[in-house]
Design a protein around this nucleic acid. Structure first.
Length: 402
RNA sequence: GCGUCGGUGGUGGAGUGGUCAAUCACAAGAGACUGUAAAUCUCUCGACUUCGGUCUUCGAAGGUUCGAAUCCUUCCCGACGCA
């Protein structure tokens, strides 16, 4: 009996898009859906009840972070991370694969996982394969991390990631992969992808070997391949042939043809399994990913940028720290149904941000998360009623005008 | 009234004869953030600028000096002490 079931209810004609339902041991997810990120078993600045009340269906936590603190065995003994944080719905954990990138190739640089098409990354930002000074060192068997907290060394392998994720107890877990840098050359993307495929097989074997865990936790393989179509398609073929419960699409992209890249992959992956686009949360990107066949998305952007003062509105992003909001007594977005917009003004949030009050982070996070959760809910509805293209066109025209 | 110590950019506060438009912090202005090393980081912040520079400043006015925010004199203002 598979722990994860996926049922497609509507397809978006002429595209790879679909609306469906994922059934997990802890509840269902109406897809497409935006997954809230609670790295350390907490969505930063929010109580779990606030996360539930804003309409979030799923919470994703991180293997590496919970392994470091408080330790996965403590989380296991607490009854799993969902129970630990008082979350009663579906959950996911990331494998630590992103930390191979963020603490490795990207550490100490300004390189993000998205690059502009044709962008030339120069100087010290080039990933020379030199891992000196980084906090992650990769070899065939796994990755050696230095803790960002205290410098202590920790070893992750696919098997170890599975063991930790079994302890954390999420409904859907990810194979241990390497998220590569967009600055890495083709040869390296190929090498890293092949290694990620070997790690995927090892993750799957380790997961199946634990009968108890694999009966109640689904495992998602992670497609890699960087910015290259040939590699992306190969990755989708190789992983698609393995018996995963779903797929993650990870790694680095060219910002402007990420949607196309997602489409290359989803055209090959098995249609009857859910697909999670890892770490994407810009509104336009969500539209592009949904119509190219993705069902789930998680992203730290709404909470992180929210804490830093940037909020979504239907007319684009605003930075509440800007002088023009000091006396703006309107809601962040008059059309938003979130708790923040129903009860507070831009001027009040501007005041909270300027005076470094913690409540600023809470109210901003509630709004930004609700904005994205609601946006993806609308996408789902529009797939069902056939108005997706209208929604996409009107939203984008307004959000990105000027 | 006498005495002492002070008056530097939006604020606090460095500097105490030349390398000072003036450390630094804060405030302010703006930007970044996409599987969370992030309640973080970056830039600007005297005026003007073709962004290469140019000009004016250190309570006020005089003076000493090749040269003064820095030394001297007087005045103004503030804090404290004594009357």
């Amino acid at each position: 009996m598979k722990p994860i079931k996926f049922n497609i209810e509507h397809k978006l004609l002429g595209t790879l898009g679909r609306a469906g339902t994922i059934t997990t041991p802890n509840g269902t997810i109406q897809t497409p859906a935006f997954v809230t990120v609670g790295t350390k078993a907490t969505v930063k600045a929010l109580t779990t009840e606030q996360v539930r009340d804003l309409g979030a269906q799923v919470v994703l936590a991180n293997t590496y972070h919970l392994y470091l603190e408080p330790g996965d065995e403590i989380v296991r003994d607490a009854g799993g991370f969902a129970k630990f944080m008082n979350w009663s719905g579906p959950t996911m954990t990331d494998s630590g694969g992103f930390q191979v990138f963020s603490l490795g190739a990207a550490f100490g640089t300004k390189v993000g996982k998205l690059a502009k098409v044709g962008e030339v990354i120069v100087g010290e930002e080039i990933d020379k394969g030199d891992q000196a000074g980084k906090l992650a060192k990769i070899d065939e068997d796994g990755v050696t991390f230095k803790s960002y907290r205290d410098g202590s060394e920790h070893r992750f392998t696919p098997e170890r990631s599975m063991e930790i994720q079994h302890n954390l107890g999420a409904d859907m877990i990810f194979a241990f992969d390497e998220c590569t840098s967009p600055a890495a050359p083709y040869e390296y993307q190929r090498e890293a992808m092949d290694r990620t495929h070997r790690w995927a097989k090892r993750s799957l074997d380790a997961h199946k070997a634990n009968k108890e865990a694999s009966a109640k936790q689904g495992l998602l393989g992670v497609v890699q391949g960087g910015r290259h179509r040939e590699l992306r398609e190969e990755s989708a073929r190789v992983l698609g042939a393995m018996d995963f419960d779903g797929y993650g699409i990870g790694g680095s992209f060219d910002k402007d043809d990420m949607y196309a890249a997602v489409g290359w992959v989803n055209a090959i992956l098995p249609e009857d399994k859910p697909r999670h686009l890892l770490g994407i949360g810009e509104p336009v990107d969500l539209f592009g990913a949904v119509e190219n066949g993705c069902d789930l998305f998680d992203c730290v952007a709404p909470t992180r940028t929210g804490r830093n003062g940037t909020l979504h509105t239907n007319d684009g992003k605003i930075n509440l720290l800007n002088a023009r909001f000091v006396r703006d007594f309107t809601p962040v977005d008059a059309e938003c149904d979130c708790y923040t917009c129903k009860n507070y003004t831009r001027a009040y949030l501007a005041h909270l941000f300027r005076s470094d009050e913690m409540l600023a982070a809470t109210l901003a996070s509630i709004h930004n998360l609700r904005f994205l959760v609601a946006l993806v809910e609308k996408m789902r509805e529009s797939i069902i009623d056939g108005s997706f293209n209208t929604l996409k066109t009107s939203f984008i025209a307004r959000y990105y005008k000027k």
